[in-house]
């Protein structure tokens, strides 16, 4: 299953990159994407043993997550630009490190969560160690957004858990 998806991604990439549709170039594309798939089919989608339907649901949810994330990215950029251009930047800033335990199980979900944290307002992931995320927050408010209410996972973590591991949002 993962081999087929890898092959399709590789071949689409070949077509976009070459831009030629004659027999010679397509055959070369088939051969080379087949070779790459044979060598590395367990790299790109490792740990994905789901059926095709489940994958489609996951992709649909992921697209909705991307829409939400894009809005967060815009907010993050306005936030950091305002902070950089404001005259009292050093008074507003309150850099510190927060850590929290994650509920996510798979590596890919953690990767997505870490990249999302880096892209959203005022937080950068430093490292993931065992189950704990270490996050550098630039203002006190941004750290508060991350942790969510009480001890439960924050809004973003609930989104990622909903996308990749089912469950409620």
């Amino acid at each position: 299953m993962s081999a087929i998806i890898t092959f399709c991604v590789m071949f689409a990439f070949w077509i976009v990159m070459s831009g030629k549709f004659d027999l010679f170039h397509l055959t070369m594309g088939l051969l080379s994407s087949g070779l790459v798939t044979w060598l590395s089919h367990d790299l790109l989608f490792s740990g994905h043993t789901k059926k095709f339907g489940g994958l489609m649901v996951e992709i649909g949810r992921f697209l909705r997550y991307v829409v939400w994330l894009s809005w967060q990215i815009v907010i993050a950029n306005i936030h950091i630009a305002g902070l950089a251009l404001s005259p009292q930047a050093r008074e507003i800033m309150d850099p510190h490190v927060v850590s929290f335990k994650t509920v996510l199980k798979t590596d890919f979900a953690r990767f997505v969560l870490a990249n999302s944290i880096t892209l959203t307002p005022g937080t950068v992931t430093i490292r993931i160690q065992d189950d704990t995320f270490y996050v550098h927050a630039i203002t006190a408010q941004s750290a508060g957004d991350l942790a969510g209410a009480g001890d439960g996972p924050g809004e973003m973590e609930r989104w990622v858990a909903w996308v990749f591991e089912g469950g409620s949002r």
Partner: peptide, 28 residues
């Protein structure tokens, strides 16, 4: 946005806050 990123890169006090400016401003 890139202008704000550069200003942040130049005037933020330490390395970690500079990473904030560079990492976010770059993408958008």
């Amino acid at each position: 946005l890139f202008f704000a990123t550069t200003v942040g890169l130049l005037r933020f006090p330490d390395f970690y806050t500079r990473v904030h400016a560079a990492g976010k401003g770059d993408t958008l």
